[in-house]
């Protein structure tokens, strides 16, 4: 968990940590910026009242990766999409928070696109660093972010404002993820004039908050982006990159990272490097991969529900 001054209180931090290991069947309710969790099937499941917007997040499909612990990343992406189909309900759309491919190759993009189409949901992508290895990312943007030639864009859906950001290019030696001046100016202008009561969902590949500096898990100018978001009453920031679930709350801004559909990575500092966890016990891989469903309830104080599901459940 993050250890900076804005980290949640000890009690909440402990609760969050427990959720990290619980793995499946946990529904997150973020009310007024304060998350609480309930087991699926309990009263909380009904709290997600019909009529609100719901959507699905998948991340880090890494098509092209074929090493331990997963030599079949198309297969696990297919399973994830199967899970989405089974549980999507009235989901309006899906977001993919980057690293669609492992090496930015056209065939890898093709494979991912074909499998993801199977969800039958309009899907909005942002690039991961593995997606922009060729020609400054142009092949990715032409295919996956048609509304954003540089990989960033926004749109509205049922009153919720979605902002997709690109923090994986023009990285500096010794630095972290990077948004850059041009994108920050665009973001400030995009949010200007919007009502503070409009729910905002921001999605980007690398966490916008500092998860772990030694492994580069953060965004150098992420705090600048968050400063533009703080006046809004409900902000949900969804990231990928670290292949595990983590949460943090700062005022009305709730940060969440998602599981990968390809392979797990270690908790910060628990391994020599952030590389894939290779020695996953037989049969346990799917408990470490997953998809996420988010529900935004328009009425009352319930602002967002995040339900993480593993492929093993």
């Amino acid at each position: 968990m993050a250890t900076d001054e804005d980290a949640p209180s000890q009690g909440r931090r402990t609760a969050l940590k427990c959720m990290l290991w619980a793995g499946t069947g946990v529904m997150w309710t973020v009310a007024g910026g304060v998350p609480r969790s309930v087991l699926l099937g309990g009263d909380g499941a009904q709290a997600a009242t019909p009529g609100g917007l719901s959507f699905v997040q998948i991340s880090d499909s890494h098509i092209g990766f074929a090493n331990p612990p997963n030599t079949n990343t198309p297969g696990t992406l297919q399973e994830a999409i199967g899970r989405v189909n089974a549980e999507k309900g009235n989901a309006a759309l899906m977001i993919h928070t980057g690293d669609v491919s492992h090496l930015s190759r056209a065939a890898q993009f093709d494979t991912a696109e074909q499998i993801i189409k199977g969800a039958g949901l309009e899907t909005h992508y942002v690039p991961g660093e593995h997606d922009v290895l060729e020609d400054d990312g142009k092949p990715f943007f032409a295919r996956f972010t048609k509304g954003g030639p540089n990989g960033w864009y926004s749109f509205d859906q049922q009153g919720v404002h979605f902002v997709g950001l690109n923090n994986v290019q023009d990285l500096k030696a010794g630095g972290l993820g990077n948004l850059g001046h041009e994108q920050l100016e665009w973001l400030e202008a995009d949010l200007k004039g919007r009502s503070a009561s409009q729910p905002i969902v921001v999605f980007a590949h690398v966490p916008l908050w500092l998860v772990y500096k030694d492994w580069g898990w953060g965004t150098d100018d992420g705090a600048q982006a968050v400063s533009y978001l703080k006046r809004f009453g409900s902000v949900t920031v969804l990231n990928g990159h670290i292949h595990q679930v983590m949460q943090k709350v700062e005022g009305s801004v709730a940060f969440h990272t998602a599981r990968s559909t390809a392979f797990p990575q270690p908790a910060p500092g628990t391994a020599p490097s952030p590389g894939p966890i290779k020695d996953v016990p037989a049969g346990q891989l799917r408990a470490l991969l997953g998809v996420r469903k988010v529900q935004l309830v328009a009425s009352g104080k319930e602002l967002a529900v995040v339900n993480d599901t593993t492929l093993a459940g």
Binding site: E129, H130, L171, A173, G174, G175, L176, D214, G216
Partner: peptide, 12 residues
């Protein structure tokens, strides 16, 4: 000559 990994810039 200082160099780094442009994907993982903490690698120098």
């Amino acid at each position: 000559y200082h160099y780094f990994c442009s994907l993982h810039p903490h690698m120098q």
